[in-house]
């Protein structure tokens, strides 16, 4: 049986999803405040890392990285509602790209699994 990452389409799917996803994030007033001052090249690279992880692909993220990487955002008010919004935008992105509902749910579960580390709880 193929893995989630293979079913979604691997690296090519990450490349296809990153523009759509990042555009949604920048246009969404619930979360775009956290992304305003960030260099767009660096941001795209980070988004690719995030999508690869959420799609169940190869990644080297540790809980500690997640905590360190989001600490300054938690200090600026990052909370559950923002994580909810990101998971929602991720779902919309995958739906547009034609990913099956069951796989979208699995991606959401992986993303939600990082919630406590991201929010430094």
């Amino acid at each position: 049986m193929s893995s989630l990452y293979e079913r979604i389409g691997g690296e090519a799917a990450v490349d296809a999803a990153v523009d759509v996803f990042y555009r949604k994030v920048l246009m969404d007033d619930r979360v775009n405040g956290f992304f305003d001052d960030v260099d767009m090249d660096k941001q795209i690279a980070k988004q690719k890392g995030f999508l690869t992880m959420a799609f169940g692909g190869p990644n080297n993220y540790t809980g500690k990285d997640m905590r360190e990487g989001h600490k300054h955002l938690v200090a600026r008010g990052l909370n559950d509602s923002h994580v909810d919004a990101i998971v929602e935008l991720l779902g919309e992105t995958l739906k547009e790209l034609g990913v099956a509902d069951a796989d979208i749910q699995e991606v959401a579960n992986i993303a939600n699994g990082a919630r406590d580390d991201v929010l430094n709880r």
Partner: peptide, 8 residues
Amino acid sequence: LFLAGCNM
């Protein structure tokens, strides 16, 4: 341009 639909 990106928000208006141009690919990065």
